[in-house]
Design a protein around this nucleic acid. Structure first.
Lengths: 128, 128
DNA sequence: CAGCATCCACGATGATACTG
DNA sequence: CAGTATCATCGTGGATGCTG
């Protein structure tokens, strides 16, 4: 029989975001990063080239886009295919795992886009 | 009849995260911030006091917790009730709007907690 | 207990220039 | 085209100390 306080072992079985040094926090960081969110959402509409993504997302620098893509690629969310031609041609797409997270992320993103007016209204209320 | 390229007006009707200066990006930032996510998820289990939250989330400083709570309060996601007693007593809870976002956020957080092992496995593969 | 003010360190981010 | 390298900077986040 188990103890009546199995919270620790149970919570750590997978990942526990409330635990300070849990690796799941890094995953969360990558996925919810400023550009990570936009990349995941954008790739839901299909394969994109580097400059396509860059043009699609307002205000991202080459450096940050490349860096964010690498993080998502390392985590297994994004697939990178490079065609050794001149000029270079690289295509980014979602992996099966990436499709899954992107759904969650897109749900959140959609909600925010729809409800931002409400948030702004609330801010105005307090200001008054 | 509308033009065949209504993308701009349609996309801007609510919020458009892909637009550089859209206020929805601020909302996204607050909600997906390092501690914002944890706060929203934690408050789903009911009202919490300041120190309860602080104890629950590993590694958060007083400053960042207070700051993150203020942002979420301003956006109308979190309700703050202060009891003018000695010692001070303040309770935080989710507003109806906050309950909605927290669902999306919790879905994402849950997915990450469950699938972090897969991500870690993928990282190991590349390292090898 | 809750939280604000201040100072400080570091990482994230951006502009620019260069390369395969 | 798709990056990488470098440098400058700006913000985030933490430690500390003080107050109601």
């Amino acid at each position: 029989m188990k103890t009546s306080i199995p919270t620790l072992s149970e919570q750590m079985r997978d990942g526990n975001l409330f635990a300070e040094q849990c690796p799941s926090r890094d995953v969360l960081k990558h996925v919810t990063s400023r550009w990570g969110v936009l990349i995941l959402v954008a790739l839901r509409q299909g394969t994109h080239r580097f400059s396509d993504l860059r043009r699609k997302m307002g205000g991202v620098s080459e450096k940050m886009l490349a860096q964010s893509l690498q993080a998502l690629e390392q985590d297994g969310f994004v697939d990178r295919v490079s065609y050794p031609v001149v000029p270079p041609h690289v295509e980014y797409s979602l992996t099966p795992l990436g499709v899954e997270v992107s759904e969650k992320v897109a749900d959140l993103a959609d909600w925010i886009e729809v409800n931002t007016p409400q948030v702004l209204a609330h801010r105005d209320d307090r200001a008054a």
